[in-house]
Design a protein around this nucleic acid. Structure first.
Lengths: 95, 95
DNA sequence: GCAATATTTAGAAAATTATCTAAATATCTA
DNA sequence: TAGATATTTAGATAATTTTCTAAATATTGC
């Protein structure tokens, strides 16, 4: 798990918005892009960063490329957060 | 809660290392700085970012300024993470 | 008050990141 | 195969961030 890649990926608001979009289920790059006012090339750059952090998965479907959330990383991420603030979340507190 | 400020603050490895240092308890700026090979001025900048994200608290103690973790933010942070990956962590899954 | 120590602020340089346009690659349909 | 659509790659520019040096501010102890 590349901690740095994950935190760096989450630091950008556009990328977090992409992740939120994907909560609705897998979407093509173009569909995702409709919600943003940036070029496809810039979007593609963000996808690269998200893939590098292993936060999303891709699959080519015909001429489209479909992105989806990689929710298994969520556990790792939670662990990283807890690792940074052990005092508060240490041992199974309330949720 | 300034989501952007928190994620941005966590994106830098030096700042995450500072947070880890503070796990050992409150420390003065100078003590924290001993572990890093950067100037006090740069360190001070990182403190500013961490404070802006409300991840640390400060208290002047004589000529020192003592930093400590603000662990209450941890809950917010966990919430933000869960918010980004709802499918996996949604409702009290395993821990 | 003055010198010493601790930290921050100001301003600039260096490094990184986000974005763009143009061109390349991949797939589909006719 | 040729043309259309979807996405990525390349290379450049703009914006942001990290770091530095030098100077400023705050506090202590003489």
């Amino acid at each position: 798990m590349k901690q740095q890649a994950v935190f760096r990926a989450l630091a950008d608001p556009t990328r977090r918005a992409i992740l939120k979009q994907l909560q609705g289920g897998p979407m093509s790059a173009g569909e995702i892009g409709e919600a943003f006012d940036i070029t496809g090339a810039s979007l593609s750059h963000h996808f690269t960063v998200l893939k590098h952090a292993d936060l999303v998965r891709t699959e080519r479907r015909g001429q489209y490329i479909v992105y989806s959330l990689n929710s298994t990383v969520m556990e790792d991420l939670t662990r990283m957060v807890l690792d940074l603030f052990p005092t508060a979340g240490a041992r199974g507190g309330k949720r």
